[in-house]
């Protein structure tokens, strides 16, 4: 195993490195989200069919992308915790769940609000929407397991197994718009093709997506640091850190 792997496994090292990274990520997240929002609301052109309701895309797509990336990180961290018994990985997995849950809620709610003027309905039991709702329930399940089981390591194992089983939902979300007939439009960003919308429309979206990822990093690091302090409260370095303040 390379050296960084062992460093990542050290709660103390993680606490220090996240403390150094947090200010930078916070500033970048703030700038990107503020700039992206102003660009999205005031400067991006209106859609010729949907008019200005189209501006909801600048929240809907980033939150949906983040909800899925966050889930994959949670499952991978959970697996690392299961296999190598790495405590920090368990803490990362646990910290991901509440952020992912709120992002899934945001994607679902903005989708519903966007659906009303566009499709004429707040909700349809369509493959994309239903699989996204299941993603939200998976997050709730992981959070419930984490809080219901007293032993930290058993809670981490149980929620990691649930997260890994639920991983099957991620490709279903991704391909739901291709496998089934759906009202939902296909993906905006694809790795292999240029976006179907003009640059004035997708550039602010890209800014928002990166901004959401930075916000995610900030929120995750904050939660992770709390979790590290709580679980390492009996170790010498936490004692020294708290008493030196």
């Amino acid at each position: 195993m390379p050296r960084w792997f062992y460093q990542l496994a050290s709660p103390r090292w993680c606490y220090q490195i996240t403390g150094r990274l947090l200010p930078g990520f916070s500033i970048v997240a703030l700038l990107l989200l503020l700039g992206g929002t102003v660009w999205a609301l005031a400067f991006a052109p209106a859609d010729y069919q949907q008019g200005n309701s189209f501006r909801i895309i600048y929240l809907h797509v980033p939150s949906a992308i983040l909800a899925q990336s966050c889930y994959m990180l949670m499952a991978v961290a959970g697996a690392i915790g299961l296999i190598w018994k790495m405590k920090v990985a368990d803490m990362v997995a646990k910290s991901c769940a509440p952020i992912g849950a709120t992002m899934a809620v945001l994607a679902l709610l903005t989708g519903a609000i966007w659906g009303k003027p566009t499709w004429g309905s707040w909700w349809v039991w369509d493959a994309r929407l239903t699989s996204m709702l299941i993603l939200f329930f998976l997050y709730l399940g992981v959070m419930a397991l984490n809080s219901a089981i007293e032993s930290e390591s058993t809670a981490a194992q149980a929620s990691a197994v649930l997260a890994l089983v639920g991983l099957v939902n991620i490709p279903i979300i991704k391909y739901s718009v291709e496998w089934w007939n759906t009202l939902h439009q296909p993906a905006t960003f694809k790795l292999t093709e240029k976006p179907a919308m003009p640059a004035e429309m997708w550039l602010p979206l890209l800014v928002m997506v990166i901004g959401f990822y930075c916000f995610f990093a900030v929120s995750l690091m904050m939660r992770l640091r709390n979790e590290i302090l709580r679980r390492e409260r009996r170790s010498g370095w936490v004692r020294d850190l708290l008493l030196s303040k």
Partner: peptide
């Protein structure tokens, strides 16, 4: 927002 103000502002 061209009549869609409620939807857009509620989302944001």
């Amino acid at each position: 927002m061209g009549g869609h103000g409620l939807y857009v502002w509620l989302s944001y």
